[in-house]
Computed example of a mutant assay.
Amino acid sequence: MSATIGRRLHDVRKRRGLSQRELATASGVSLSLIRKLEQGERNDTRLETARRLAVALGVPTTQLLAEPDDREGDFPPPDQWAPVRRALTPDALSPEPDEPPTVSGVLGVLDSALPLFSSDRYAELGPILPALIRDADRLAASGADGRAVRARVMQLTGWLLTQTRQFAAAHDALGRSLDCAPDRLHGAATVSTQCWLLLRQGRLAEAQELAARWADEVEPRMSRATPAELSAWGWLLLRLSAACVRDNRSDEAEHALRLAHSAAVAMGREFAPDKDFLRAFGPVTVTLKRAENAMIADRPDVVLQLAERVPAGGLRPTSNNHNRHLLDVAEAHVRSRQYAEAVDVLQTIRRAAPQWLPNQRYARDILGRVIDRRRTLTPEMRTLADAIGVPM
């Protein structure tokens, strides 16, 4: 968020003829926060809060936000990722190894590492990823096969760095992935991750433009579309919908979501082209993203209804998408004053993804609101707060 959000909020509110108190009532944002923003005592706020204010004022969310800066987030990158960031620097290739890497050898290492990526096992990825990046960079000069390997390694690296809020490094890795993409569909998969990165940074207009342009470029002929084509197009539409709903463009968000649904129906089931978990797409994925949009639109009742339609077994979306959905479910419980249920959901995520959860600011916000509303905390809640990083 830019430091000018308070000034822009003040200007738009005045043009709408609303007092601060009237805006607070219409948006559900506290009068205290609105005053602090406009007076410059607070220089930023959550994107969700900005959207609520934009809805009440009848403007796109981006009208309240200046051009975003390149900050890494609310907290510094964990030290465990310093070697990965160094491996992305221009001098990371020296010195030369005794034996040059081979395409088959790097692919073998990558295949063995994929379960670590797909299950968010950061502690085990940290030690092996720098060498994998350097070997993939060396392969880029060996021909088309080497460039394809580099594209895949860089896409996964960019995805992981986005997960852990290493935003500048993530942009670098994803740019390299796109440069080496072997074809249009692999490029679209990388662009989908780039759109997600832009969304996490609050760069909504850029995410909208990028997703819309690539969705137009890869739109398949539905009568003969392959699963890979449907996945690429569907994911770009989901990113477009996510950017639009956050920018208070609900009609455009719903239109993109309907198109994604048509791609999912054509797919018929959850399917991962080339066994690539990042491209897993189908009806369940679209349902999860529809619930995410409903949470952004402050419809916790819809979120809980949609959650009942998500199957417990079978091929599921990525763990990241599924756990992100569960955070929406926990938030829906909080907004419905079902605090025990919210804590139960957070505990479920913690058991399934203990290294993923502490990186989610959303999770800290959810548990923080539960703690604020409880007179006494159970030992379970205190343990969960320590694990997520909520100050007590």
Score class of each variant (00 low, 15 high):
Leu237Arg: 15
Ala82Asn: 11
Glu341Asn: 09
Leu346Gln: 05
Val84Gly: 07
Arg42Cys: 06
Ala141Pro: 04
Thr89Arg: 12
Leu199Ala: 04
Leu139Cys: 02
Ser336Ala: 14
Pro311His: 05
Asp247Pro: 03
Arg71Gly: 15
Arg85Phe: 10
Ala207Lys: 05
Pro358Glu: 08
Arg246Leu: 08
Arg52Tyr: 07
Glu72Lys: 02
Leu18Val: 06
Ser262Gln: 14
Glu229Asn: 11
Gly202Tyr: 02
Leu327Tyr: 02
Asp179Glu: 13
Asp111Lys: 10
Asp344Glu: 13
Thr164His: 06
Asp251His: 11
Pro101Arg: 00
Leu278Thr: 04
Ala353Val: 06
Tyr339Ile: 11
Asn323Pro: 07
Asp11Arg: 14
Ala253Gly: 13
Val284Ser: 00
Pro127Ile: 11
Ala170His: 03
Phe277Val: 13
Arg51Lys: 06
Val29Gln: 03
Leu199Gly: 04
Asp247Asn: 15
Leu377Ser: 14
Asn248Ile: 03
Asp135Asn: 10
Thr164Glu: 04
Thr164Asn: 10
Lys275Pro: 08
Glu254Cys: 09
Pro115Gln: 06
Arg279Thr: 09
Glu41Thr: 11
Arg184Gln: 14
Glu308Arg: 15
Pro130Arg: 05
Pro283Cys: 05
Val109Ala: 09
Trp81Gly: 00
Met381Thr: 13
Ala205Arg: 15
Val343Met: 03
Ala205Tyr: 12
Asn248Tyr: 08
Gly202Cys: 04
Asn321Glu: 15
Leu93Cys: 07
Gln39Ser: 15
Leu129Gly: 00
Ala26Asp: 10
Ala263His: 01
Pro97Trp: 05
Thr318Ala: 15
Phe277Thr: 08
His322Tyr: 14
Leu278Pro: 01
Lys14Trp: 10
Ala312Asp: 14
Leu197Ala: 12
Asp98Met: 15
Pro227Lys: 02
Thr157His: 01
Pro227Leu: 08
Ala307Arg: 13
Arg299Cys: 14
Ala352Phe: 06
Leu288Lys: 06
Asp74Glu: 10
Ala168Pro: 09
Leu367Lys: 01
Arg21Gln: 11
Arg369Ala: 05
Ala54Cys: 08
Leu204Trp: 03
Ile5Glu: 08
Glu331Trp: 07
Thr4Ala: 12
Leu65Ala: 02
Glu72Trp: 05
Ala291Tyr: 04
